[in-house]
Design a protein around this nucleic acid. Structure first.
Lengths: 232, 232
DNA sequence: CAGTATCCTATCCGATACTG
DNA sequence: CAGTATCGGATAGGATACTG
């Protein structure tokens, strides 16, 4: 920020000096969510310039929150891993998220729609356990978007690894989901349910998969029962 | 910050937009600690310019965190009170403070010594219950400081109200405490104990009061047993 | 006491391009 | 893929003085 330290011995101030800068908490959220590679982190904070991302990572490294580790076998490439101090930021991120979910008007959140961000998050929290033990592909389509950014493929491999594609990976598709971005985002955030939004979603393909969507589609970590109830 | 929003629907990002700006979390700490008047808040964030303080208060008001209320009987004067959303920031402040206390190297904190800030905090957490039910005055002296900013009087009125004076209020003094600022700050933060620092503190006056100091002197809300133990 | 007004600069950061 | 280099502009915010 514009100038240096707060000059306060208080631990809240000391912590804020490290964490309360533009983008830093959002980046930390990505880190505690498990991203370690530069470009994975970038996908989680798409509006952040690579320069600033790099700078913030260095600051967090200097603060003892992350360590940059070379990847054996991939020269020139590093991963950013949380230190114990970094892991211990989970409660801070959680507290912020809980507060945001509870008190930031949901209309405000739903103004910041971003399909690739949403899909990237969904990829992260997808639960493969209720799915058949083979490759499963779900194609999402948001017809409102320009055709090049409209389609997403979630590819769940048989061992459970999930991939997100923005171009057709060419596999057979098990389920087509067509809806609008706001609806899908609201569901993901726990502000709406699939049942309630049923008439704004079109399913095609496996009825089985469509029916169990609530199961395999995880929800946002902050989609609380509280909110689900409030809007039920 | 330099430019607008993060454009993310994620509640962590939404909350960070409101809270993760320079000085804001430190100000919120003051608010959840109970300060409501402009100048009381100012004492808690002495390096923050009044302009910025005023601006941040307006931002927090716009975000629904505080309400500005005119004080009946004192025209032109307002108090800043937390809304329910504001009260609900306590877990966020706590999480930050716990993290800071645990992971920010204590030497770093102890670089930011500030006597009036320390005394102001001590005033806030002082526990009058173990004190005699009359006015009790404790004078603190930090000989290292310039003579005009060296002395502080904690005045505990018989009903328990605590006042902090930087000039002699003229009352009889029950206990004189003379020490260095780093020692007193470390004790307050739970990084040291009165016993361990005994040879760096001089007491004069009521032996009773000196002995019970650990009782009536509160400690910082983040002075955890964890830390006390670690340094014992 | 409780703020506002003004000014001015450091720096943050966004955009874009580029490299191994 | 994983970043670095460079640039320019906006603005945040520090300092100070001032007012009802």
């Amino acid at each position: 920020m514009t100038q240096g330290s707060y000059y306060q011995f208080c631990p809240v101030a000391m912590a804020s000096e490290v964490l309360c800068k533009r983008w830093t908490m959002v980046l930390v959220r990505e880190l505690v969510s498990g991203s370690t590679r530069f470009n994975d982190l970038k996908r989680g904070v798409p509006r952040m310039s690579p320069t600033l991302l790099s700078q913030r990572l260095k600051e967090l490294e200097a603060a003892g929150v992350v360590v940059r580790l070379p990847v054996p076998g991939e020269p020139g490439i590093s991963e950013y891993h949380l230190t114990p101090a970094g892991e211990d930021l989970l409660p801070v991120v959680k507290a912020l998220g809980v507060w945001g979910q509870r008190w930031v008007e949901s209309n405000l959140s739903l103004r910041n729609l971003d399909a690739s961000l949403l899909m990237w998050d969904m990829r992260r929290n997808l639960d493969p356990t209720p799915l058949p033990k083979r490759r499963v592909v779900v194609k999402f389509c948001y017809p409102e978007l320009p055709s090049t950014r409209r389609n997403f493929w979630l590819v769940v491999e048989s061992e459970g690894h999930v991939d997100l594609c923005a171009t057709d990976p060419g596999f057979d598709i098990d389920l087509y989901v067509t809806t609008d971005l706001r609806t899908m985002t609201a569901i993901w955030m726990g502000l709406d349910t699939i049942e309630q939004a049923r008439d704004r979603i079109a399913f095609d393909g496996s009825r089985q998969l469509a029916k169990s969507m609530r199961q395999w589609l995880g929800l946002s970590p902050f989609a609380s029962e509280e909110n689900l109830a409030a809007h039920a």
